[in-house]
């Protein structure tokens, strides 16, 4: 497990009630987890799971796989907590996202199972839905264009664009230099522009 940082500013999903003690930081929870504290584990997992699940679902494209990956990542937190050194160099969330990204990449390399999620939903026949359908169609084309990107380019776009991570953060998560991440982003945008050029002309938006 990598070195870590001072408590990340990870905010709980629900703020502490008035008069209650502030929730412990990530480092404090990790120290407790290292001692086998399951309650601390549940608290840390609940705190970080939503973002990790969103990242995994963006990379994998389906919710069930994303949930499994995040569960696996959380187990690695349990087993790796004793090696966590809160020396201020990295945030726990960055380490967790690196684990999630790596697990997602591993999972994508397995043979795919054609689940129900690949089946398109039946179109809504009501006339008022036409504009909604057009927008959904465009979104689907964009999703396909993203899915066709080379893996690293897609990861860089996911982290920097959708997860709003800085290039420096993304570089840490992907174990790359900042300039390498910037290069991936530039190539990804170039490829997306080329693939979506028809959409650009049709919608006039792009």
């Amino acid at each position: 497990m990598g070195a870590a940082t001072a408590s990340s500013p990870a905010a709980p999903t629900v703020g502490p009630a008035a008069g209650s003690l502030p929730e412990p930081g990530d480092d404090a929870l990790l120290a407790r987890i290292a001692q086998g504290d399951r309650q601390a584990f549940a608290l840390l997992a609940s705190r970080h799971a939503p973002k990790a699940m969103k990242l995994a679902q963006r990379i994998l494209g389906n919710a069930a796989d994303a949930d499994e990956v995040v569960q696996e990542a959380m187990l690695r937190v349990w087993t790796g907590a004793k090696n966590w050194i809160p020396d201020g160099r990295a945030r726990f969330s960055t380490w967790l996202h690196r684990v999630v990204v790596n697990l997602c990449v591993d999972r994508r390399r397995r043979p795919a199972f054609a689940g129900l999620e690949g089946i398109p939903e039946p179109p809504d026949p009501t006339p008022s839905a036409v504009s909604v359908m057009a927008r959904q169609q465009t979104a689907k084309l964009v999703s396909q264009a993203l899915a066709e990107l080379p893996e690293r380019q897609r990861l860089a776009v996911t982290l920097c664009y959708y997860e709003e991570r800085s290039a420096a953060d993304a570089a840490q998560i992907l174990s790359l230099s900042v300039s390498a991440v910037e290069s991936l982003l530039a190539r990804a945008r170039r490829a997306l522009r080329a693939r979506l050029s028809g959409v650009v002309q049709d919608t006039g938006e792009v």
């Binding site: 997992a45 609940s46 699940m53 959708y162 979506l196 938006e205």
Partner: peptide
């Protein structure tokens, strides 16, 4: 910015509290 607008049309994954609870319970 036009390309950004297209990219932003991709739906954000919906992460419900029930899903989070299920993942944490599964890990435990």
């Amino acid at each position: 910015a036009r390309l950004d607008a297209l990219l932003s049309m991709v739906a954000e994954p919906e992460i419900t509290a029930a899903r989070v609870d299920s993942v944490v319970a599964g890990a435990l």
